[in-house]
Design a protein around this nucleic acid. Sequence first.
DNA 1: ATCGTTGAATGCAACGTTGCAATACCCGGC
DNA 2: GCCGGGTATTGCAACGTTGCATTCAACGAT
Lengths: 334, 334
Amino acid sequence: MSSRLKDVAARAGVSVRTVSNVVSGSASVAPETRQRVQEAIDELGYRPNLAARSLRAGRTGIIGLAIPELHSPYFGELAGLLVDEAQRRSWTVVIDQTRGDADAERRLLAQGGGRVVDGLIISPWALDPAELAATAPAVPLVLLGERGPQGAADRVAVDNVAAADEATTHLVGIGRRRIAAIGLQPQLRNGTARLRAEGYRRALDRAGLPHPSAAQRSVAALHRADGARAMAGLLDGPTEPDAVFAFSDELALGALHVAHERGLRVPEDIAIVGFDDIEDGRYSHPPLTTVSPDKPQIAERSLQCLADRVYSPGNAVPPQELVVPHRLVRRGTA
Amino acid sequence: MSSRLKDVAARAGVSVRTVSNVVSGSASVAPETRQRVQEAIDELGYRPNLAARSLRAGRTGIIGLAIPELHSPYFGELAGLLVDEAQRRSWTVVIDQTRGDADAERRLLAQGGGRVVDGLIISPWALDPAELAATAPAVPLVLLGERGPQGAADRVAVDNVAAADEATTHLVGIGRRRIAAIGLQPQLRNGTARLRAEGYRRALDRAGLPHPSAAQRSVAALHRADGARAMAGLLDGPTEPDAVFAFSDELALGALHVAHERGLRVPEDIAIVGFDDIEDGRYSHPPLTTVSPDKPQIAERSLQCLADRVYSPGNAVPPQELVVPHRLVRRGTA
DNA sequence: ATCGTTGAATGCAACGTTGCAATACCCGGC
DNA sequence: GCCGGGTATTGCAACGTTGCATTCAACGAT
């Protein structure tokens, strides 16, 4: 079934090398020879063996994308953009789901996804920023959505502190005074939730408003169910908030759901701001006000970083920290 | 940086072959030798080169997953399950997005994703069932969510006609009489929408209810925006429906959004049933009634099919048509 | 003491491709 | 007619791994 260069060469009556030249198009081949070879290729349905090519070239043309979970809208949208951008660069993307498992993340970093990949884009979840910085990655690495001590890898992220500050400040600006937060993750060493909490507190401090710990709800994961639970906890608490800043849109949608269940009007009784700008938020009732990171730019710049390291390992610039823009999108919930 | 079997062998003072035996664990190696080799492996940080292995074995351990778009919740959830199931089988998944492009689908079928993959799971979108059946795939193939003429590939799908019939019959059962449909795609040769439309009409025929073409809205894609447009068209039409069967949850959520905008009560004024059982539907307001295909089973059986063909090409059973179960999940919208 | 059997380790070759260097050829200029 | 310079084509080797066959040593059974 599968034919090799050798078969094509035999059929066209030329050497293996010449067929290779035709396929790659690099060396010069006489037009008539080229045509004869091309015909043989078509007749035999020849397709180059990528394993052999990779072995020869030392590169596979495959990059890894490691994310906590594919089914979450944010990561789904991001993965889609990354796959598109990779296709544009003739790269293939393999996907790993870490499911928030620290060991899985460690293994990926240390082994580079089993050597198949030329580079790895990873959105760390369970791992410590310090551990991330200390690990010597097996392949060129791009870290998504994290910030922390400078390590051996490039990082691409929004300015989480500033973004959370803006979101909270917006709630202050529309007259809210009891502003709660949903989405802290003290059990994780992960930096993102911490940074958003920091921005939240900073904004409230500047406005002279309190941020009691009872108004800052932790979550186990970032799903709608977690947001729903957290919202229920807030509403059952001593002081009912008049606004909530959720650290992700999924959390916000879960919270919105509970607000409806309890008969609260949104945004009149309680305002909600999310983070991520996922598609669902545009069609919720009411549509979700949210912080929108520039996802296409995250995808593009991550791959650009990786391309630089994989294709020009010579001029090794020091690890970069790329900050992509974000903006607050006002819709119906705040 | 990267060490080979040869380096490990030199360090441990054994032959390359022995190191290979230690790594693979297949042949018998003396305990002390094994330990010495293991130490050398650890010290050098040896990792086997997968390209070389693949070249030798004629297999890559990589399978392709080709779907229209990763960011859509249904495909995101399904892709997540497939990646998990593949990890369990020590396979790696590369993702291709066809973006509904017929040429992209054709290319994938004919070339098997460029020979890197051992097999391909594809959810066809733009391609004709007839063309699908006629194409000789480059690698073992599993088709998702389609049914049609028997071809060279296995198929895994729910019984779309029966499922659509059930959904529609449910709307009839709760007393609705002007039941519209959203999601026809006459411009595509794709079979799924056609099958669901067939089930919808069959149920209405059986109930003696009309299904005028004005009540059956076509869409360009299956996004919320398309559902919203279709719903607006229905509500602006001559007869306002008292129920809508949307061929996907995303369409249903877009429709729900417009119903809210127009001040309609759901389900009192208009009932809505979707299809896919995506996570968002559980948290919409009200939660979405939907047809739930058994997604874990789709993932598992697709990979099982592929495993059978890739690992036992000898006993080639004829192409199978696997029907996975579905059930109607009643929530708030109908 | 000898033979057969098993366990441990090894060498060779091959998977399909491409870089390198070499060869064969043709053409125009002296 | 010879030579230099380019074009077209080729053979060899190597990428890192594993299947196969082989070798060698040790041991128990005869």
